[in-house]
Simulated scan of single mutants.
Amino acid sequence: MNSRKSQLEAINRLLDIMDDLREKCPWDQKQTLESLRHLTIEETYELADAILENDLQEIKKELGDVLLHIVFYAKIGSEKQAFDMADIANSISDKLISRHPHIYGDVKVENAEDVKRNWEQLKLKEGKKSVLEGVPKSLPALIKANRIQDKVAGVGFDWEKPEQVWEKVQEELAELNEEIKKGNKNNIEKEFGDVLFSMINYARFIGINPENALEKTNKKFINRFQFLEETASKENKKLSEMSLAEMDIIWEKSKEFFR
Rank of each mutant, 00 (worst) to 15 (best):
K182F: 04
P136K: 08
N177I: 07
W159V: 04
I92F: 09
P140Y: 03
S130P: 11
D158I: 08
V165H: 00
V109H: 08
E172M: 02
W159G: 03
Q121A: 12
G105C: 07
D106A: 11
E179W: 00
E191G: 01
Q164S: 08
S130D: 10
W159Q: 05
W119M: 04
K95E: 12
L122A: 11
N118I: 02
V109M: 06
E163S: 14
E191C: 06
S138G: 05
V131H: 00
H100T: 14
V107K: 12
Y104R: 06
K128M: 03
E113I: 14
E171V: 15
D158T: 08
E172Y: 06
K116E: 15
I148N: 06
K144E: 12
D94R: 14
V109Q: 02
S138C: 15
K161T: 11
W159Y: 15
K151V: 06
K168P: 02
V169M: 13
V155R: 01
H100S: 07
G183D: 04
S91V: 04
L176K: 06
W159M: 02
K125V: 11
N187I: 05
P136D: 05
E163W: 12
S138W: 13
A174L: 11
P162C: 09
L176P: 02
Q121S: 12
N146H: 12
K129E: 13
E175Y: 04
I143D: 02
V165Y: 00
G127F: 01
Q149A: 10
V169C: 10
